[in-house]
């Protein structure tokens, strides 16, 4: 078996101390292969977002280790870590995090700007990815003037502009109506199936989770083998 693109071993994470102490993760181990699609399913407060943040190297674990392509994330220098975040991972956030005063194109090419790509190439690659998501005609619009579904597609475009290997999505359809949510889902699965991008999604929506190759159920900071809530 090839080296998993992401692997976690006995991950734990604690917030606060003393009486306010809260163990968000209590020892989670998992492996995610290249090109897989994985849903992390759990209720609010189950630790699913914390797990994704740790896997995406946005946060440092309290215990255990995350291995990216077999490399322990802890051993990465700050510069390597930034490069990894910039070129290997893409993020789709539930709250979009778009700069509403800037144009759609400017929002989309932000990762390229951070990477130090030239203005001309930024524009070309930004337009290409907007084309792919059928947003090319909105490139010059202010991001604040878009509908929810369009914003989520802009966020996906931004996540894709650096050709990431892994796409993280945090409740990608949480803020969208059913029809729009369906369109966004289709885009994500198309990327997974036709472009080989590893898809890791956090959701509490069981219908969405059902479309993934694998589902990881999490409750009270621990992975559980069966879908208890669903069975119950």
């Amino acid at each position: 078996m090839s080296v998993p693109i992401l692997a976690a071993q006995d991950l734990s994470k604690t917030y606060g101390r003393g009486p306010d102490r809260f163990d968000a993760l209590k020892g989670v181990s998992l492996e995610i292969g290249r090109g897989d699609s994985v849903a992390i399913v759990g209720k609010s407060g189950s630790g699913k977002s914390t797990l994704m943040h740790l896997l995406a190297l946005l946060d440092s674990p309290g215990g255990g280790q995350v291995r990216v392509d077999g490399t322990d994330a802890k051993t990465l220098s700050g510069r390597r870590l930034n490069t990894l975040r910039n070129t290997m991972f893409g993020f789709v956030f539930q709250q979009f995090f778009l700069n509403s005063a800037s144009s759609v194109l400017e929002n989309v090419v932000l990762p390229l700007k951070i990477a130090g790509v030239s203005a001309r190439e930024r524009r070309a690659r930004g337009m290409a990815v907007l084309e792919q998501l059928e947003l090319a005609d909105k490139a010059r619009n202010k991001a604040g003037n878009l509908s929810g579904g369009q914003k989520q597609r802009v966020v996906i475009a931004r996540a894709l502009v650096n050709n990431p290997q892994v796409l993280f999505a945090d409740e990608p359809t949480g803020n969208l109506d059913t029809a729009t949510g369906r369109i966004v889902e289709d885009i994500l699965f198309d990327l997974n199936i036709n472009h080989g991008i590893t898809l890791i999604t956090v959701t509490h929506d069981h219908d969405l989770a059902a479309r993934f190759n694998r589902r990881l159920y999490i409750r009270d900071g621990l992975l559980i083998t069966t879908d208890e809530e669903h069975a119950a």
Binding site: A56, L58, G78, R79, L81, N82, T83, L84, R85, N86, T87, F91, F93, F97, N99, L110, P111, I114, A115
Partner: peptide, 16 residues
């Protein structure tokens, strides 16, 4: 704050 967080999540270094 959130914009800074986003840029850091996208690999922008503290120095930048």
């Amino acid at each position: 704050t959130r914009e800074i967080g986003l840029m850091k999540a996208m690999g922008m270094g503290s120095g930048s």
